[in-house]
Design a protein around this nucleic acid. Sequence first.
DNA 1: GAGGGATTCTTGATCGTTTGAAAAGGGAAT
DNA 2: ATTCCCTTTTCAAACGATCAAGAATCCCTC
Lengths: 334, 334
Amino acid sequence: MHFKGTTLQDIAENANVSKSTVSRVLNNKSVVNSETRRTVLEAMKRLGYEPNAFARGLASGRSMTVGVVTQKFGSPYFDAILQGVIQGFTGTEYSPIFADGQWDQRVVSEAIRTLLGRQIDGLILLGCELDESHMIELQGRLPMLVVGRELASWDGQCLFIDNVMAAYEATNHLIEYGHRKIAMIRGIEHHQDSIRRHEGYCRALEDAGIAVDPKLVQDGDFSAQSGVIGVSSLLARGAPFTAVFCANDMMAIGARLALHRHGLRVPDDVSLVGFDDQGESAFLTPPLTTVRQPAREMGAAAAEGLMKLMQGETCRLPKLRATLQCRETVRRRQ
Amino acid sequence: MHFKGTTLQDIAENANVSKSTVSRVLNNKSVVNSETRRTVLEAMKRLGYEPNAFARGLASGRSMTVGVVTQKFGSPYFDAILQGVIQGFTGTEYSPIFADGQWDQRVVSEAIRTLLGRQIDGLILLGCELDESHMIELQGRLPMLVVGRELASWDGQCLFIDNVMAAYEATNHLIEYGHRKIAMIRGIEHHQDSIRRHEGYCRALEDAGIAVDPKLVQDGDFSAQSGVIGVSSLLARGAPFTAVFCANDMMAIGARLALHRHGLRVPDDVSLVGFDDQGESAFLTPPLTTVRQPAREMGAAAAEGLMKLMQGETCRLPKLRATLQCRETVRRRQ
DNA sequence: GAGGGATTCTTGATCGTTTGAAAAGGGAAT
DNA sequence: ATTCCCTTTTCAAACGATCAAGAATCCCTC
């Protein structure tokens, strides 16, 4: 039933050396006579040897594995970060293993426990909402990095963009194009990113001397469906608006559909701005103006940073910026 | 530097029993006095014990881990399958670890090697294009399942939908709505799914007595960009068409944009059908008519099937069907 | 040819579990 | 008191690698 692999012992016998010599060749740390090394390598190839990661991990205490906990497989934003992480680790001796937190703190905790049992050497958390004490405890246990969450006390070990600033710029873009009645569809309540993006929106309006109208702010949950509902309730309230800023692209897609349903043209009647710049956004009709988050770059930077940390060096993550991608859903208001 | 976890030994001492008793409690296989069990469990909780997966794996020969190789993180279709797989494993004692094949056979092989080194107990391959001999060799080594690939010799161990049939139905839908000049944008050349979907398209046309016009068939690569280019070159060729069938939704999104750019309305001037039913498709303007693949269900079924296989039972995967989701991009041709 | 270094290899303990076999404890039957 | 049989627990040997510490070999010099 169970496949019995070749072991280090087998190689040793086959090459007429001791186990430790084989081990030395394997890890090419210490010196081994080049002749011996050749023999050993040959034996390995011949027998199709693949070292047993468990035995290695057990003996060395290091697994050459890092855990990556995402919020949700299938979320365009997190998937993009994931790709960056993978890219950052390919070609190195570390390999990432992934767990899905399903937007649920309990699932995340559980996933981390499992990962710890798997003796990961480091941990990357994506946009995690765990409470700070838990995080600090974790940080004491192993090298760890957080992407997409701002933790005041953790300077340099979390990688995030300035959501307030980015939302400010997006809103300001609309203001510069002559819009004064700008609606916003927010993300999940209490979610850090939602709060910050909303704050940026408010600040931009205030700086332009426009009062924030609570009737123009609608809660959503980052899903396309909530974008549809958001626009409908906005419209139902009767407070007029000429532009909508959505806290992510999915909601912008939904919003765009709802506007269409209500006979409003984008951008002729209503301008629209999203957030994230997910893959499809550039191909919507019309292509969506949105805030681009450098998700891949963030993932790659996290991978590099974590490797430094695991090698005992300090790491200071770069400060990446979100940039506004101006496409075709914003039009100057006459 | 390195965190020293609580070990089974510690628990044993703390609860005044031997290591093996603790182990027995842990695996609750054999009988343990309920009183003793309680004591042990308490000690575990008290010391925050987390079993070392390496030691376990080494001793038992089983890792309680299954490898899942996807083609590309971020692909809506594969991500959906992944979610199904996760769902299928949550609550069980197995946990999946993921690797990204990046659409590259070599990367896939490498990923499988790494996974094998990690002593996975089973393997799920998503839409993999490895050559059959390699697959057969793998199959000899460990329980394994393939999702999204049809292998003649592997009845019951690969899970796929009938792409020919699905494409046939999609095309036929257009024919029933009065379309005769139906263009198609294909996926990556030589890719199994592309070939089958193209075949379904051809058969439907033939069965309706319509000759397949090579000028109406355009190659793509499953990306939105290739949908844009596809429509443009179709148009440039001057062969008129009233409908376009795309081998996936991303290309349909691109196609829809390109049609818009050329002043063609969907569905008034040109009807459009996609394939996959990815998340956004229902929210496009107008919502996309497309073939829905039961991706989540496929993932979940694969997880269940693999567990059966790993327990030594046989497994016969269900035959899932793709279904046409009629939305608003197809209009009757006068 | 003895002594001293380098270099290279081997021995054997160790990592934290699992697991089959042996042992201990406690009745009940003989 | 002895035997037998449960149930429950312990012993100790794996599992397959790593890694000090020590042993062997070789080369060179005096």
